[in-house]
Simulated scan of single mutants.
Amino acid sequence: MVVDMQQGVFATPRLQREACVARINQLTRAADRVIFIQHIEEGGLEEGSDGFALLPDLYQPEGAIYSSKTACDAFYKTGLEQLLDEHGIREFVICGCATDYCVDTTLKNAASKGYAITVAEDAHTTADRPAAQAATLIAHYNEVWRTLTVPGNPVRVKPTETILQAWQAN
């Protein structure tokens, strides 16, 4: 699941954009199924606008699934849960933007719903915020997710390379 890697989102500079996109592309090239989540919002992220479009250097495999949202949580008032059920998806890797908003909110809700979540710890990004720099936020959220209490369903936080190696072994 690739969250909010859209042109309008990246109008605000994000930490290590190119490296993040490169790792996401590694994941999307190797994944059995890819779901792109796109945010809709007035002010540059209107559906069908240039800002709504995914980044041009993001690999979009044939057969990718697209879902849109209007809140930080990709499950809030969307058909995402039904879409996952239709495709028999109960576990997924999550990556994208923004670490401290949409990635965080979506993965916490997904874990609470019983989905087995793996975070690609080096394939999500965010912007500098008034209270903390992007690098600090990314490290902080990786640690939060690593220690998140969801009895019977721990969130796994792994480097992209480890995820890819596990996929190749299966």
Score class of each variant (00 low, 15 high):
V150Y: 06
I163L: 00
N170E: 14
K108A: 00
L58I: 14
N142Q: 10
G79L: 02
P61Y: 03
Y66S: 12
A139L: 08
G43K: 08
D4F: 08
T136P: 00
L54P: 03
V9P: 00
E81N: 14
F92I: 14
E41A: 15
V3W: 07
G48Y: 03
T149M: 04
R14L: 00
P154D: 08
L80R: 11
A74L: 08
G96Y: 07
S49I: 12
Q82K: 15
F75G: 04
I24H: 03
C97Q: 04
H87F: 00
A31E: 08
L58A: 09
A116M: 10
Q7A: 00
L15Y: 03
N170V: 11
K69E: 10
A98K: 10
A169T: 13
T28V: 12
V155C: 05
D100N: 15
A135T: 11
L83Q: 12
Y76L: 12
G51E: 06
A116C: 10
A166Y: 10
Y59A: 10
Q82P: 00
S112W: 11
L137I: 15
E86K: 12
P56G: 02
V34Q: 04
N170G: 15
P159S: 08
D4P: 11
T70A: 08
T118Y: 11
L15P: 00
E18N: 11
D4V: 11
V93P: 02
D4Y: 05
T105G: 00
E41Q: 15
Q16I: 11
G96A: 06
E46S: 07
V155W: 03
T162I: 08
P61T: 04
A169H: 13
E62P: 05
I89S: 06
A116L: 07
F10S: 01
P13D: 09
P61I: 09
L164I: 13
T99E: 03
G79H: 13
V119S: 01
T78F: 01
A22Q: 10
T78G: 05
I117L: 02
V144K: 07
D85A: 14
G79R: 15
R29K: 15
H39S: 04
T160I: 07
C20S: 12
S67W: 00
E42R: 14
Y115F: 15
T147D: 00
A131L: 11
Y115S: 02
Q16V: 09
P159V: 06
W145V: 08
V157R: 03
C20Q: 01
M1D: 02
Y141W: 13
